[in-house]
Amino acid sequence: MIKTENLTKKFNSHLAVDRLTLNIGEGEVFGFLGPNGAGKTTTIRMLTCLIAPTAGKAQILQYEVGRDDQMIRRNVGVLTETPGLYDRLSAWQNLLIFARLYEVENPERQVEKYLNMLGLWERRHDPAGTFSKGMKQKLAIARALLHEPRVLFLDEPTSGLDPEAAKLVRDFIAELRGKGRTIFICTHNLDEADRLCDRIAVFKTRLRVVDTPAGLRRQLYGRKVVFHLAQTADSFIDTLRHIPLVKEIQAIDNKLVVALDEPEKHNPDLIRRLVQAGADIQFVGELRHSLEDIYLQLIRDEA
């Protein structure tokens, strides 16, 4: 659906995007993470034919960037970093303009559909300038969807929104996820990326890593199981230490944190041995590193 090959963008001597190679499949929700100035917006602008790449290739659907720009614009929807609405015009007028520019078959009906879907129908005659940030963002999302694009680019969709508005927008993206659209999200919100995205790329001028959220966790931290015990004892640690598949053990308060490759397979054996050694096990769970930990680790490693 979205393919790039050594996609590069230079602004004079400043290298903004360096040889980006990606392959994003149909219906995939792809998170594009990176610090400010990493080149995320530049990448979206190249993929939506707003700016031309300096080198490399990009393909959206079956269309090539730089050759089939009009076709790409027809088939992708973009939510820009700022909503960029016409503040003096009503919500209805804002959407109708774009429905016509995208040559939507029945523009009025489509505008009505999305205003209803995003809960803005009652305010359709109000100037967009009077809307709250969350409502403006929803209106901008509606604008990006009016022509039912198969590929959707969302640049910081919840940036600057209060938690309630951010949740509304996130829920809406989650709804879109199930409808077969390919969604490319640039975000700073790591929790959002973790919850919404099938795969995540960490990017800073060049691609640092790309994997599923679980894959990233595995890559950086391996898998760890936490045994909550009534009481810890050195003998419990000794019991586990002698098992070859256990990579690392840490005792923290009344917990034992055990690193191993396949917890699903080996946990029963570990539990059995701990019980035999006299441990009272209260809970067993997997230790999940937040995406924030992973992201910061990657950015730190890079620095």
């Binding site: 707003l50 960029g84 503040d87 774009f98 995208y102 040559e103």
Partner: peptide
């Protein structure tokens, strides 16, 4: 200044 040009240029308008 209204930042509305980018969404406009992203449409298939020449």
């Amino acid at each position: 200044t209204a930042r509305s040009l980018e969404p406009l240029l992203a449409t298939p308008i020449t």
